[in-house]
């Protein structure tokens, strides 16, 4: 582990991003729009009474939580990694005594540092506006564990898909499909516990719920003890799978790198 180099990379990206902070806050505002719209849709839908146990205050808490968790788990670097492979910029990263993964992690960490204060202010404003009750402190510790696992799964899946650029020339469509699956099955459009029948079962088994929805469901107190344990096991399993698959893809893919340009 090259911590010194990794921290320097985060610093470098942070300096770079802070020089365009307006752009990144606009980007963050765009990411907030989806959860905000779905929150109002579900508030309208639940006017007559709770839906599958979700009342209006639950939807507010869920979607405000989603704004924060989505911001903290959303990886952006996979778009640039794919482009770097295709343009040959990856060569610059390959020459450093530092795994290429550091560049992607540094980029995502810096993005979160730059955007998070903006998102926190908006989320706090909404919390104040809708009189959200504070979450019990006892939930914070496990939530942070679930959040880290969610970050690992979401980052590794997107990063691994981006690495497929080592074989093929264009992967942006695949990345968009992945984002769509996250949108449908991770709990953005609808909390996964509200998904009906087979779709709900599929969401419980696929990795997407564990990238986003599961930590929020826990934070909002919607899960029983056995559901929490099931979710934790699924998160750990998917995190392990995503790391192993990423390593496998990298080891094989890098042999196909053509270092175009120059």
């Amino acid at each position: 582990m090259n911590w010194r180099g990794g921290i320097a990379l985060v610093g470098k990206t942070l300096f770079s991003y802070t020089s365009s902070i307006g752009f990144f806050w606009t980007l963050a505002l765009g990411w907030l729009m989806g959860p905000l719209i779905y929150m109002f849709v579900w508030l309208a839908a639940s006017q007559e009474g709770p839906i599958a146990g979700y009342g209006q205050s639950d939807f507010i808490l869920y979607y405000v939580g989603l704004m924060l968790v989505n911001q903290l788990t959303y990886p952006c670097s996979h778009w640039t990694i794919g482009e770097s492979i295709q343009s040959g910029t990856l060569s610059v990263w390959l020459l450093r005594p530092l795994a290429v993964l550091y560049e992607a992690v540094a980029s995502d960490v810096a993005l979160k540092v730059v955007c998070f204060p903006f998102v926190v202010v908006i989320a706090a404003g909404l919390g104040f506006l809708f009189h959200i009750d504070p979450v019990p402190w006892s939930r914070v510790g496990p939530f942070l564990v679930f959040l880290v696992l969610a970050q690992i799964i979401r980052f590794m899946f997107a990063y691994t898909l981006a690495l497929l650029s080592l074989w093929t020339q264009e992967i942006s469509a695949l990345l968009k499909v992945n984002d769509t699956l996250v949108f449908l099955l991770a709990g953005q459009m609808v909390p996964t516990v509200l998904l009906p029948g087979m779709l709900g079962e599929l969401a419980r088994l696929l990795p997407y719920r564990y990238m986003l929805g599961f930590p929020i469901e826990y934070l909002t107190g919607q899960l029983t003890g056995s559901e929490i344990m099931f979710g934790l096991r699924m998160q750990m399993g998917w995190a392990l799978v995503s790391i192993v698959v990423q390593q496998w893809v990298w080891q094989r893919g890098i042999r196909h790198y053509t270092a175009v340009g120059g």
Binding site: N2, R4, G5, I7, A8, L9, G11, K12, F15, S16, S19, S20, G88, T89, S91, V92, L95, R96, P97, L98, G261, G262
Partner: peptide
């Protein structure tokens, strides 16, 4: 133990100062 300089690619960071790029390089290479 090596360096590769490619005339058409830069390892300098576009938005950072030259000195900052050097400092980052120092940290990465220990």
């Amino acid at each position: 133990s090596i360096s590769l300089v490619m005339g058409n690619k830069t390892q300098l960071t576009w938005d950072n100062t030259v000195h900052d790029s050097f400092l980052i390089h120092k940290e990465i290479y220990g």
